[in-house]
Design a protein around this nucleic acid. Structure first.
Lengths: 224, 224
DNA sequence: ATAATAAGTGTTAATTTGACACTGATTTTT
DNA sequence: AAAAATCAGTGTCAAATTAACACTTATTAT
């Protein structure tokens, strides 16, 4: 019985939530779109295997990933019995763009335009998205998808994407600012509007301290 | 590399939260206290393996278990490289007492009197408890620990145990009844008080429909 | 100068929360 | 038979939070 890891990396480009995919480099299903996957070696933990596989296939390193779920249907890989440990992660696309250079052939796909994937990888992404919704409702995880400096409209936009729900900006900013997690900057982002919107940074000390206090940003989050 | 499953079964006896343990039947560490564990066979999913192992070691069947986490530290089993898929479950001790007859030697241990366990099993239980706290704060999972008919004082007692926190009974009953999930019965439980407390049953239809609406029973749940 | 665009901000009513204490039913004791 | 003990059950009020709602401001383009 083989033990594999598969990595789901969500990335936000300012407009869309994306998932990173590659064309599989070995048989079976060589050339088909797939999550970044590989086999666990004898001398590594599954977390180490996930980090190694991600690095090998995309060039990305120091990406914080966490266990999502293990998939073990007997025929999920029709050629060999394989259990897959799935990891998932949220990153800011821009921050990692350099690491992910042309030597690699990983590609970002917007969530609503994911190509046909091998095995049960589509199901894996579905579950990861569900967990993201769950988690983001109570924990300030979405900041991991944003650059260091971001604006309130960008942040709201991201929440609206994740929950597929429009939010009232007055209530949104009151709520998000009331957490005390955001530090207003002096400069503005001027690309996406004439007036420009102030940048904010995350207060990392408070972020870590308060991570487990529940926020409930979304009134009636739809989790499943 | 071996793939194992370990099962964490929490049970409530009316007073205490308990975990089910057995004395391990094979080397290494034969005779030491342990979670119910075994190896995944070629022709079964890990969920099936967990159900089979639980049945073999304790007689329990039809227990709903869900994946908790995979443990894969290289030396966690010092004799052989083994990855363990951990499952956990909540049950009403009474309901399963018959299944768990004298043929088996599984024993319930109150959470604050757990013996020394093999490998990383203590850590596994810690994580399962953390997840129970997390989940029970938003989902009505605690009913799985209770018999079909239960009283409000019993239910409150259970929440107080899980969160190690005393709750105001007026606020508690207001909140729990406002979910509409409980159906008041005509009869009373008269064992534990002179006056007797009305039984309630869970409205199973609503329970399933509302499972994913967040309840937030506990004001500031301490999750970690 | 004017129009267009998106940012930013405040009020009010309704709901929810948390704090708090007494009455009621029954059994045990004297 | 009366009194005491035990635990179930219930209501109010003030504070905090939420949801709904619309206008002003800064800037750029015309």
């Amino acid at each position: 019985m083989l033990v594999a890891v598969d990595c789901i990396i969500f990335g936000f480009d300012g407009n869309q939530l994306n998932v990173l995919l590659i064309q599989r480099g070995f048989e079976p299903e060589k050339g088909k779109w797939s999550l970044m996957g590989g086999f666990v070696q004898k001398e590594e933990t599954i977390e180490e295997a996930a980090a190694r596989v991600l690095k090998e296939l995309t060039g990305l390193s120091n990406v914080y990933m966490e266990q999502l779920h293990a998939f073990s249907a007997i025929q999920r890989d029709p050629t060999e019995r394989t259990i897959s440990m799935v990891f998932s992660s949220l990153i800011d696309i821009q921050e990692y763009r350099q690491q992910m250079n042309d030597d690699y052939h990983a590609q970002w796909f917007p969530l609503n335009h994911i190509p046909k994937l091998i095995f049960d990888h589509k199901e894996m992404i579905g579950l990861a998205l569900q967990k993201l919704r769950y988690k983001a409702a109570f924990h300030p995880v979405v900041f991991e998808l944003l650059p260091e400096k971001f604006t309130l409209p960008q942040l709201q936009n991201l929440y609206e994407l994740i929950y597929d729900q429009v939010l009232d900006k007055r209530n949104f900013s009151r709520k998000i600012l009331s957490t005390g997690l955001l530090i207003k900057q002096k400069d503005k982002e001027k690309e996406s509007s004439k007036r420009g919107a102030f940048y904010y940074k995350l207060d990392k000390r408070k972020y870590e301290a308060q991570f487990n206090s529940f926020l409930n940003f979304i009134s009636n989050p739809i989790i499943n």
